[in-house]
């Protein structure tokens, strides 16, 4: 009923969800073995910066959109340079790609016939 079989693999979300809940329960049990002496708001939970006080976080301290995956984008910069140059935003180029693909499809279809 809920399961899905592709003929060689099986996916059952209900079983998966039960397993997920089971793992959660186990992790809570493990967590309960932890140190009971933990207290919030004391020196225990302060960030340790070589003994210095933690500087105040200002409103601007936020990892903004383009900061994430900066390294990945930089690593793929050779690809991204080309693909950005490809998206020119000019309508004539949009149409040119359409006509180009049309021509290619014609060639393939005639050859395959």
């Amino acid at each position: 009923m809920s399961g899905l079989s592709s003929g060689f693999g099986v996916w059952n979300p209900i079983a998966w969800a039960l397993l997920f809940v089971g793992i959660l329960v186990v992790s809570f049990i493990v967590r309960s073995f932890g140190n009971k002496g933990y207290k919030r708001g004391t020196g225990q939970t302060k960030v340790f910066l070589s003994g210095n006080d933690e500087p105040e976080a200002s409103g601007g301290l936020h990892v903004r959109g383009d900061h994430l995956y900066w390294g990945m984008v930089d690593g793929l910069s050779a690809y991204y340079r080309r693909v950005k140059a490809w998206h020119t935003g000019i309508l004539s180029d949009y149409a040119a790609w359409f006509i180009g693909v049309l021509g290619l499809v014609f060639v393939i279809l005639v050859l395959a016939r």
Partner: peptide, 11 residues
């Protein structure tokens, strides 16, 4: 993750 972090998370 990028969109969610940038829009919803943060101080």
């Amino acid at each position: 993750v990028k969109a969610f972090q940038a829009a919803f998370l943060g101080p």
